[in-house]
Design a protein around this nucleic acid. Structure first.
Lengths: 202, 202
DNA sequence: ACCTGAACACCGTTCAAGT
DNA sequence: ACCTGAACACCGTTCAAGT
């Protein structure tokens, strides 16, 4: 865990883990079948944020937004965890707690179990995908913004007119902005979905 | 390219590439700095679908949905490409063409360049994230659905009541369903955003 | 039961040496 | 300029041998 946070996902090798634990690499295979199994266990343990519930007094959309922001912030604080987060291994108890919670949220909001599941999945997909796509980048770094502006501006104006024209704007859009716009759009869409299924039910 | 499609991303090693090309691994470093640079070039070349535009006669939402589904289908058909798709390397000409196109779409729909960029990014994030989270899984495989049903049903009913109760429903929700629900919600949210900025402008 | 040392078959990358 | 052979420092995994 500390190894992953301090030296990154690339340094999470069986040898380094064994060193950190004070044993040989071969010993690890007494407690774990594969490296993959170890990663699965590690990732689920790292997802214990999902259990912290939003404060009371919010409607479902407020709670969903609160949880999504918390989850995203946690992943951004632990990029190593985020980079190991795939779809296959979301079976651990902490991940399941997250599924249970978001499912409850959307069902109580008025969605059918099927739609609630799809909505919760979509939201998680967006949060994880959002962190994933910005893993290498540090948007607060001014160097990064300058680099992107140059990339857009130096394109051929005939084939990429909009990129050249709005280079400055595009370079300035932070990943936080992107996330908020997408999160808001998703929740607005879910709200419409709930109203529609209410109408259908009447 | 054929190596990636036939034997997967794990088999995309410098040795295998060199074999496929009929040279030694060391020769590759005359044409490419890193393996990473090679992957970047390869991924961008694999994204040539972005250039195929949707048929005329659709509104912006229809076009966006059409492009998103096309992109997703392409990635699902080439899982190796999808697994290599990170955020850092979207600089290639094909990726930029996709950015230019989606930007044009949302600006013409009535969004400011800033919001259009965020909307386009969010949509791409959702598509890529959606494919990413289902990379290992084959939902059409009945074995997979049975496994998921068992996973949910065998949980502790006291801590995960909803998972146990709706195990059958949850196991049956396909990734296609999830994607359609999320896509629809996003586009509905963007539509509301456009109407809002129209009102603000008046 | 748990650990060790040593090996195996793989990686990406480098570099002197060839043509 | 481009390619080769051989090496380097790493991987994950296995296995007989120890306690």
């Amino acid at each position: 865990m500390t190894l992953l946070d301090t030296r990154g996902a690339a340094a999470l090798t069986m040898r380094n883990i064994a060193d950190e634990l004070g044993c040989t690499q071969a010993s690890l295979y007494r407690h774990v079948r594969n490296r993959e199994e170890l990663v699965t266990l590690l990732v689920d343990r790292a997802l214990d944020v999902a259990s912290s519930a939003p404060p009371d007094g919010m409607d479902w959309a407020g709670k969903a937004a609160w949880s999504a922001r918390l989850f995203r912030a946690h992943l951004l604080r632990h990029p190593g965890v985020a980079s190991l987060l795939r779809g296959t291994e979301r079976l651990g108890p902490n991940s399941l707690a997250g599924v249970q919670y978001s499912l409850e949220l959307f069902i109580n909001a008025g969605l059918s179990p099927r739609l609630a599941s799809a909505a919760a999945s979509s939201l998680a997909t967006f949060v994880i995908g959002s962190v994933h796509l910005n893993l290498g980048l540090d948007m607060s770094d001014p160097e990064e913004s300058r680099h992107r502006r140059l990339l857009y501006r130096s394109r051929d104006a005939a084939t990429f007119p909009l990129l050249v024209q709005h280079a400055d704007t595009l370079a300035e859009v932070s990943s936080d902005d992107e996330f908020e716009v997408g999160l808001n759009a998703l929740l607005t869409g879910f709200r419409a979905l709930i109203q529609n299924s209410d109408i259908t039910r009447d």
